[in-house]
């Protein structure tokens, strides 16, 4: 009951966020220096043909009209046409790229989440011992390490030296990503490093906090076995804050995607956005940023709801004393 109410409220605020974001993105990109008409027709176009194109595309209309047209299109599922790629519908190029990126993010996710939680918990349980020092140092070292730095070292080791993975993540023409899954490994690992650093450290401190709590002492002095205390009493409480931490770090994950996609020339949404920015492809930038915002917002919403569902203190807030 409460959960549903919270969900509806959060969904509402998510929609508001997206609307505000779409305005911001639109305004920001539209004020970009450079003339769209000139970009389409090239340097040699005559002033008359430029003006004709502007008129035809409605580029001379006031900005709110253009926004309304653009937003209306999006609501109907039309993301517009790419300028750089001469009128190709964005829908036809974007979604395949989004699919690739999601697959990459997912691969990274299933590597770093269990890994960071496991080592974070382990470090917390073994606090101040050698195991903890090693894990903590590793976490500290990777915490703010840019993805491309860990990426080039991985390339150096696995692609240049050992030659077990491809040096770039290119899908041969005519093939799908599913027949080339090995191109995912190095990019996903590059992302894993920085995520591991942050999440494992947070997991460690939340584990230590829980292990020092009165109820863990009470459970131990009830004569419960050590492992049972750790798994039944400590773990769930220590994992709860981590869910929020992971949710908050999805933003870094998306930033990281752009970096590794650029490094590995991986055909995803991030490298598409990079190309769009480099070529000043206005509609494509708008579409990509809006989509990233939407995915990020939804993932935050999901983690928040998950946290609420798993935490009895929030689940039963209504009848608390």
């Amino acid at each position: 009951m409460n959960i549903l109410k919270t969900f509806m409220r959060r969904l509402g605020s998510l929609i508001v966020t997206l609307v505000v974001m779409s305005v911001v993105i639109f305004v920001l990109v539209e004020i970009m220096p450079g003339d769209v008409a000139e970009m389409i027709l090239g340097q040699s176009a005559t002033p008359e043909s430029l003006e004709a194109l502007r008129e035809a595309r409605g580029l001379n209309d006031p900005i709110y009209q253009r926004y309304a047209r653009w937003a209306g299109g999006i609501l109907q599922g039309d993301l517009g046409e790419s300028i750089y790629m001469r009128g190709v519908a964005i829908n036809s190029i974007l979604w395949r790229r989004v699919g690739h990126s999601v697959l990459l993010a997912f691969t990274a996710f299933i590597i770093f989440v269990p890994l960071s939680i496991f080592f974070g918990v382990l470090a917390g349980v073994k606090a101040k011992k050698l195991t903890d020092s090693i894990i903590s140092f590793f976490g500290l070292a990777t915490m703010a390490l840019p993805e491309f730095v860990s990426g080039v070292f991985l390339i150096g080791l696995f692609a240049v030296q050992l030659r077990v993975f491809p040096i770039v993540s290119i899908i041969p023409i005519g093939e799908s990503i599913f027949s080339n899954l090995n191109i995912l490994i190095l990019p996903a690992l590059s992302i894993t490093f920085v995520m591991f650093g942050y999440i494992s450290r947070m997991q460690r401190s939340s584990m230590i906090l829980v292990l020092n709590s009165d109820y863990i002492r009470a459970a131990t002095l009830k004569g419960m076995p050590y492992k049972y205390v750790i798994f039944r009493h400590a773990l769930k409480n220590a994992l709860l804050p981590t869910i929020t931490i992971i949710g908050m770090n999805m933003g870094w994950l998306f930033g990281g995607l752009i970096v590794v996609e650029t490094l590995f020339a991986f055909p995803g949404m991030g490298s598409l956005l990079m190309t769009a920015i480099r070529t000043r492809d206005v509609p494509l930038i708008e579409a990509c940023v809006l989509l990233i915002t939407a995915i990020f917002a939804i993932s935050t919403l999901v983690t928040d709801m998950l946290y609420g569902l798993l935490n009895p203190r929030i689940r039963y807030q209504g009848d608390a004393q």
């Binding site: 920001l28 998306f254 956005l273 930038i285 940023v289 990233i292």
Partner: peptide, 24 residues
């Protein structure tokens, strides 16, 4: 808080990248 939430809706790297890319 609402404003910060909206700012945080774009990953910081994407935000900086787009703004810098646009401004040049």
């Amino acid at each position: 808080l609402r404003m910060l939430d909206i700012m945080m809706a774009i990953p910081p790297l994407v935000l900086a990248m787009v703004v810098l890319g646009v401004l040049g």
